[in-house]
């Protein structure tokens, strides 16, 4: 039951030609595919290189200090004789600024996301979303500068403090750096809750707010959780703000208004004067390892939540 007439000599020749051309084409296409695959590995390669170099330049410090003393050591006097390399105060400072910043940024970020996705009219949404994006685009050095020259004197005067450069100020600035992250990722999650779910709830007589609280937020909770964790990750890794605003004192904070020295600030401030491949240099790289592990944990948890508790919605059907 051949559909095409004339399977003559010509056609056979033509088909041979096709097959020959086809093989060359397939080889070329495969080469292109492999080329793109190799380039796509660039990101993970870079990540791998970051790990390799952090460890290469950071591990030598543990010949001088045990891991335990490094992480839980109370004293960071890297330039003393003999030096002390204990970063416990730096870790606590990082955790403290991140926690306080989260207390501010999580409610603000999530509520703004709810406002944008559920309450705001289309016009306002189109106006406010770019504002949130612009907030995200503000260079950290500018926020740090602002915290230093505007917020610090203000805090110092209002609360009658010895210095306005402290944990609270840094947390406030960090909060405004992580709000955009929290807000925009949550907003995506909330906005992609299927309309059918929402309508079903409204049709049963629930008010809009009840629908938000009982249907929309539960349905998008994994996206919101991811957003929060990524926001916190951004706060703990942020450098310029804590370098300029946190006050720089190496002590475990006991009050909201204590000056502190989070890990990134310590690295940024001291690397320039640390002798190349001296103990101080190694210790700063090792601090980088600790910081990197913290953010890696945040990101892996966020990734895990995003994948495991995949959002309820049309996409899963």
């Amino acid at each position: 039951m051949m559909s095409f007439a004339g399977t003559g000599q010509n056609q056979i020749k033509e088909m041979d030609e096709f097959a020959r051309k086809g093989r060359g084409r397939q080889r070329r296409e495969r080469a292109i595919r492999i080329f793109f695959f190799c380039i796509a590995l660039a990101s993970i390669t870079t990540l791998g290189l970051i790990v390799v170099f952090l460890f290469m330049e950071g591990l030598p410090i543990f010949a001088k200090v045990s891991v335990n003393d490094f992480i839980f050591g109370r004293y960071w006097y890297p330039t003393d004789e003999p030096p002390d390399f204990g970063i416990f105060a730096l870790i606590m400072a990082s955790l403290a600024v991140t926690t306080v910043a989260s207390v501010i940024s999580i409610p603000l970020g999530v509520l703004t996301a709810l406002y944008l996705a559920e309450v705001a009219s289309a016009r306002i949404r189109e106006l406010v979303k770019p504002i949130v994006e612009l907030l995200a685009a503000l260079p950290s050095v500018v926020i740090g500068f602002f915290g230093m020259v505007v917020v610090a004197p203000f805090l110092q005067e209002v609360f009658d403090l010895p210095t306005g450069l402290n944990l609270f100020n840094a947390s406030l600035m960090l909060a405004f750096m992580s709000i955009p992250t929290i807000c925009s990722i949550s907003e995506d999650a909330i906005f992609s809750v299927p309309t059918e779910l929402k309508e079903a709830s409204l049709a049963l007589g629930a008010t809009h707010l009840e629908t938000i609280v009982r249907v929309i937020v539960p349905a998008s909770i994994s996206g919101i959780a991811t957003a929060i964790i990524l926001g916190m990750s951004r706060a703990i890794g942020e450098t310029m703000v804590v370098l300029m605003v946190a006050g720089g004192a190496t002590l475990i904070p006991s009050s909201l208004f204590d000056p502190v020295r989070p890990m990134p600030a310590s690295i940024a401030a001291e690397m320039a004067e640390a002798p190349f491949r001296g103990d101080h240099y190694y210790a700063l790289f090792a601090t980088g390892i600790v910081l990197f592990i913290f953010t890696l944990l945040f990101n892996v948890v966020a990734d895990h939540i995003a994948h495991k508790y995949r959002q309820v919605g049309a996409a899963t059907l």
Partner: peptide
Amino acid sequence: RVIRLGINNLAGVPSIVFGLFGLALFVVL
């Protein structure tokens, strides 16, 4: 999945750590 994990985590690396990385790889090595 692995490539995506790499990209997501690269996006989350603190900027100061990029600084350390650049110092060790490009400036020194």
